[in-house]
């Protein structure tokens, strides 16, 4: 494999991580909860698209849209039933709840669909286009384009919509925002819906490139979280930058290391950043990590 190919692979992986990382960082910014089950929301999204496109025989884009809508609902449900009863608890109780939700979703899907790998029946394996010394498939181009489009949409949501502004206000100072008449619970629910919709979209894209299985969300989500830390918690541009950083580092890293260590590279970056630069690449202040 040539070096350019590893860079392209890193960009594809980064695009996928970014769709998860945006929701993680928004949710963390508001609730200070590490949404460990966010990857399972993506996984469920991928299975919803599978049901629509393979079981019902509708076109995959329809499945993609249904998955996004279902993802939003699932995100709100997770917030309502697992996180909302635990507000004001010790910081890591929310994390335990999220881990439990993650295991729950993995096994419910496994119960219905089995543990074996599934695909979207996209026809015979695509032959990639060759350019500048690397190969890229149409699906992979599509992944990058859709991911970037959704990032632009996110920017619009955060900067231009009323909910986005309110979300930033609640993340900044919840009590102050409430005293100005902002319904923070509603804003939190919207944030979950928005972030989870993006995650579901990410899940479908990941499944298009590789395949579906009940554990498919776990690793991308932990890497997305590493991206959030690298970019600075709570920052959306940081999360996107961090995603490409993680995607590129782990792919270029296997130029030097056995490819089996790809996942370990992301975890190593995560620990190093937590310890030595908890405010991330872009962040200025320590976001309360060390109280």
């Amino acid at each position: 494999m040539v070096f350019q190919q590893l860079v392209v692979n890193g960009i594809i992986a980064g695009s996928e991580y970014a769709l998860l990382a945006i929701g993680l960082t928004l949710i963390f910014g508001i609730l200070r909860i590490i949404h460990f089950a966010h990857g399972e929301v993506a996984m469920v999204g991928a299975y919803v698209a599978f049901v629509v496109s393979v079981s019902l025989g509708l076109p995959l884009p329809v499945g993609f849209v249904v998955a996004i809508c279902f993802g939003a609902l699932l995100g709100m449900a997770v917030n309502r039933f697992a996180f909302k009863p635990l507000r004001k608890q010790h910081v890591w109780i929310g994390l335990i709840a999220a881990i439990a939700v993650s295991i729950l979703l993995q096994n419910i899907i496994a119960l219905f669909f089995g543990n074996e790998i599934k695909t979207y029946n996209l026809g015979p394996v695509e032959k990639g286009m060759e350019m500048f010394g690397f190969i890229i498939t149409k699906t992979q181009v599509l992944i990058i384009v859709v991911a970037v489009a959704l990032m632009i949409l996110t920017w619009f949501f955060i900067k231009k919509t009323k909910t986005g502004q309110q979300a930033r206000a609640v993340a900044d100072n919840r009590h102050l925002a409430e005293s100005l008449g902002i319904d923070s619970e509603k804003v939190i629910a919207s944030t979950f819906a928005f972030g989870s919709a993006l995650a579901a979209a990410g899940g479908v894209l990941i499944a298009m490139e590789t395949n579906l299985d009940p554990m498919m969300g776990l690793m991308p989500n932990i890497k997305a979280f590493a991206a959030v830390i690298v970019g600075g918690v709570g920052s959306v541009p940081g999360a996107i930058l961090g995603s490409y950083f993680i995607g590129l580092t782990e792919n270029i890293g296997i130029w030097y290391l056995p490819s089996g260590y790809k996942d370990a590279i992301a975890f190593f970056i995560l620990i190093v950043f937590l310890l030595f630069r908890p405010q991330g690449i872009l962040g200025k202040k320590k976001e309360g990590i060390e109280q």
């Binding site: 909860i33 590490i34 910081v91 937590l274 990590i289």
Partner: peptide, 8 residues
């Protein structure tokens, strides 16, 4: 590190 960051 404290709390959830230590956990991660």
């Amino acid at each position: 590190l404290r709390g959830d960051f230590l956990a991660i």
